[in-house]
Amino acid sequence: MLTILDRYILKRYLWTFIGMLLLFVPIGIMANLAEKIGKIIDNEAPLDEVLVFYGNFTLVIGNLLLPIFLFLSIIYFTSKLASNTEIVAILSSGVSYWRFLRPYFIGATLVAILIFFMGMFIVPHASIGYNEFQYKYFKRNKTDRVTNNIFNQLNENDFIYVSRFDPSREIGYNFTFEHFNGDTLDYKISAANIRWVEKDSVYRLTSYAKRKIRGAKEIIETQRRLDTLFSFDIDDLTPVSYVADTKNLFELNEFIEEQRRKGSANINTYVLVKYKRWALPISAFVLTIIAVAVSSVKRRGGMGVNLAFGIGVAFIYIFFDKVFGTLAEQSGFSPLLAVIIPNVLFGALGIYLLQKAKR
């Protein structure tokens, strides 16, 4: 049951957090619009698409920054409590420091639940429109997928490879398709290029050659051009780089298992996205601990010192998160450790600061 103290702190906690969102989210939108307005005008982006993009922008970027907004909110209102000696009065009345923390953890739990449901089910859908608009109007000269040396395992027996893929023309170069029976190569198809012909719903192979292995014999078939069918979609050659961001909790788990079976080279990137979604709600508790420890002590310089320290910690936290995320994506570092280490380090820092603040 919530006491008067719990309701008082929780009310300040949540209203300050909401106020921080209402203040900084529009600023973020205006800053992004000021930066991108030239490209929007030059590329003649329709107004309705721009409005939808900034709705998706609010969800995608806002969800990532929710723990940081929470962190700054706690520093702001707790510093005011400390400067008004309200915390001294609370503790002098016989309330223990750990009991004083309870409404903060209740608030962190509510925010963590919000972050969880947004990150798992709402933001993935928004990511589709957000990323498609980015590549359509802001990154027109960049590709949204890997286009060189693409290898995919379709199932236990079938493998495909292209040296280069042009997504705009839906054509792959130096195509190879290998079918195995167990550990034995049954046949191999190669072509100078493979193109998806949408009007006929077929794949067109140029300079086609098929090599069949029959015991000690090899049977070779060649044609200048062949229209045929395969069991894979053209997007199986190379999914878009942000594909994991667009899938909800259940879809992402299935997608990761499918990519593992295929032997995808980007599996660490997809797993990292999954673990980051689970880690983001936990960061709400970690940053809450640090924020209370920093701001619950009355300091010379007041709220300004606490906010400056808080902003510094927030930037360092983001830096660590980016560094370990990059390591996981590019060097084979464990994605699980990449999300655990920053939270463990800053969790330990928070507990240490709490002990100091308690004394």
Score class of each variant (00 low, 15 high):
residue 228 T to D: 05
residue 224 R to Y: 11
residue 221 E to G: 03
residue 254 E to I: 10
residue 254 E to S: 14
residue 254 E to W: 14
residue 241 S to C: 08
residue 270 Y to Q: 09
residue 282 I to V: 10
residue 276 K to Q: 06
residue 242 Y to G: 03
residue 254 E to H: 15
residue 252 L to K: 00
residue 239 P to Y: 09
residue 279 A to R: 00
residue 258 E to F: 11
residue 257 E to P: 05
residue 258 E to M: 10
residue 259 Q to K: 15
residue 284 A to L: 06
residue 222 T to C: 02
residue 229 L to W: 10
residue 264 S to N: 15
residue 226 L to I: 10
residue 241 S to D: 14
residue 276 K to S: 03
residue 285 F to T: 00
residue 226 L to R: 05
residue 251 E to M: 03
residue 287 L to H: 01
residue 221 E to K: 10
residue 270 Y to K: 09
residue 242 Y to I: 01
residue 289 I to E: 09
residue 289 I to T: 12
residue 238 T to C: 09
residue 231 S to F: 10
residue 285 F to S: 01
residue 240 V to S: 07
residue 227 D to K: 11
residue 266 N to I: 10
residue 276 K to Y: 04
residue 223 Q to I: 01
residue 264 S to E: 15
residue 282 I to Y: 08
residue 225 R to P: 03
residue 214 R to W: 08
residue 255 F to E: 01
residue 283 S to G: 03
residue 218 E to V: 09
residue 254 E to Y: 15
residue 254 E to K: 15
residue 281 P to K: 01
residue 287 L to Q: 00
residue 285 F to C: 01
residue 257 E to V: 11
residue 249 L to H: 15
residue 273 V to C: 02
residue 259 Q to D: 08
residue 266 N to Q: 13
residue 288 T to K: 07
residue 233 D to T: 04
residue 247 K to Y: 08
residue 224 R to P: 04
residue 282 I to R: 04
residue 289 I to Y: 13
residue 233 D to A: 05
residue 283 S to E: 02
residue 270 Y to T: 09
residue 243 V to D: 14
residue 245 D to H: 13
residue 235 D to Q: 07
residue 252 L to N: 01
residue 273 V to N: 08
residue 218 E to S: 05
residue 281 P to N: 02
residue 268 N to P: 12
residue 255 F to V: 02
residue 260 R to A: 14
residue 215 G to T: 14
residue 241 S to F: 07
residue 260 R to F: 13
residue 230 F to C: 03
residue 237 L to K: 10
residue 270 Y to S: 06
residue 255 F to C: 04
residue 277 R to N: 02
residue 277 R to W: 00
residue 275 Y to R: 00
residue 219 I to D: 04
residue 236 D to S: 11
residue 281 P to Y: 02
residue 262 K to Q: 11
residue 236 D to A: 11
residue 246 T to K: 06
residue 257 E to A: 10
residue 252 L to C: 04
residue 222 T to W: 02
residue 283 S to I: 03
residue 272 L to P: 00
residue 240 V to W: 03
residue 284 A to N: 05
residue 258 E to A: 09
residue 222 T to V: 07
residue 214 R to S: 15
residue 263 G to A: 12
residue 246 T to V: 11
residue 284 A to Y: 02
residue 250 F to A: 07
residue 287 L to A: 01
residue 274 K to D: 01
residue 242 Y to M: 02
residue 223 Q to A: 08
